[in-house]
Design a protein around this nucleic acid. Structure first.
Lengths: 267, 267
DNA sequence: TGCAGCTTGATTGTTCAACACTATAGACAT
DNA sequence: ATGTCTATAGTGTTGAACAATCAAGCTGCA
């Protein structure tokens, strides 16, 4: 799964570059239909089979694609997303693209500037602080009231395992995803769809931060073992201990990220 | 650059308690201002606006308007919002309206159904349960860690006072707003912009529920005094007591709302 | 030189009219 | 009544237009 199709180069989006990708082949791009000749079905479906959401509108598909571009670091924070250029590259109309921008702006990944367009939002120091405040707030509360045999715990375990696999494979992006999945599972313990979806949004912003920082091994490496310990405490019926460890984890992670951020910011 | 400017046809957007439909345009059928004659500046700004966001795009303005229609109960849950009809009534193009729909869908006020359009989302029993779960989760945590002299406390007091004024004036919609403002101020105690904006969204959904229920006096009346008590406890340096009372308040309110909901649902 | 004002592209904001696709309501046959 | 078929209305998406705005280059002139 997760076969990311990525644009050749992020520089295309920074306004300056001129090399447009021709990219005539598959992916999920629809070919521009010529009115009089062949008319390919424009209503498209997404490859991924599972999911109770069989239809997805073009705007949502494109949104998902740009989202991936952003969190994979291919679209760097601060870069300008030109409506014209992007609509040509992604083979969608400007109108559709604008709908996409609305979606992603609400998600916090993009930022509007009046009459100047959209930019990939650039997390600041205070962004990081706020994100971690929210994380402590939500995750710790969820953990504190958790039942050890809650289904969320199973997802936590699964996340820990994939994290280990990815570490062995030196797939640091995967490790990051698994780490986030672990903590999303923690939030699941609270049994609240709204809380979970909010947390998912926060995670997205966090990934933006991760993309900003280099050296992902150093970034995620030290933390995946702590996740395992926390999970074990929970499973052994000591949610209070697990909560305490979780809070310590989050405080440490925050300091860690802030430090890395400051280091690259002072350049 | 912060010069405020009202555009000529801003009156269209100040909706005066009437339906969405427009006052009868002189001349015949829905004619939109043609380019060469009247040219109202379409780039508009909102008057009040103490925020750092001086400019507002048409889509955002329209979104604000529909939002009000929804929470004021003028647009009832479940009703279908036709793109064509609404775009004519609001004097905006279908494309702009679709951007608006994207915005409001992300906010949870509207719901998309593939190829069938958007509907005002209808809160269910589980919606209410989830909303109150989140409220207890967030508000209680915020209260528990609050400092008595936090600026949020001032806002809490202000909300209590307007609630009383509105009650005297029999303005029950105002009472509802003040109640929500009070609890938003509670969340402010946590000092997290993201948490506050999330809570604002939850509040919106809750207002949707309120709009569904009749008898607003019965709905809000009993609760505004409890807010005052909670505030007093906080100000007197007993956040623990305040938290306890807050949780009790929320549990009671949830039962209350659920009961009212069930009563109207079985009809 | 320095700088205020004007001109000029480039880009966003918004609209329009068209067409493709889908769902639903009737008409019809069973 | 039940099921199939066809209009039809409404959504999904497009490309082209124009208006409003921003950014930068150019001018004229103290």
């Amino acid at each position: 799964m997760a076969a990311f199709r990525l644009l050749p180069d992020a520089k295309h989006f920074t306004g300056g570059g001129k090399t447009l990708s021709e990219e005539g082949e598959s992916g999920l791009a629809v070919r521009r239909p010529q009115r009089d000749e062949t008319k390919p079905s424009r209503q498209l479906e997404v490859a991924g089979a599972r999911g109770p959401e069989p239809v997805q509108t073009l705007a949502e598909t494109v949104a998902a694609r740009i989202r991936e571009q952003v969190i994979s670091g291919m679209l760097t924070p601060g870069s300008h997303l030109s409506e014209l250029t992007l609509s040509e590259e992604l083979q969608v109309s400007r109108n559709t693209l604008r709908e996409v921008f609305r979606l992603l702006t609400k998600e916090g990944l993009l930022r509007y500037e009046a009459n100047r367009g959209v930019f990939v939002s650039t997390p600041s120091m205070s962004t990081i602080i706020d994100i971690y405040r929210v994380r402590r707030f939500i995750e710790c509360s969820a953990m504190a009231q958790a039942h050890p045999r809650h289904p969320g715990a199973r997802n936590m375990r699964a996340a820990v395992e994939t994290a280990h696999h990815c570490r062995e494979a030196r797939d640091w992006l995967g490790v990051g995803s698994a780490d986030i999945a672990f903590h999303a599972a923690v939030v699941e313990l609270a049994d609240s769809p709204r809380l979970s979806s909010f947390y998912a949004q926060i995670s997205l912003e966090l990934r933006l931060v991760f993309g900003l920082l280099q050296d992902p091994e150093f970034l995620h490496g030290p933390f995946i073992d702590q996740n395992l310990t926390i999970l074990t405490e929970l499973e052994n019926g000591r949610p209070a201990v697990a909560t305490e460890m979780l809070e310590a984890y989050l405080l440490r992670a925050e300091r860690f990220i802030l430090g890395a951020y400051a280091r690259i910011a002072e350049r």
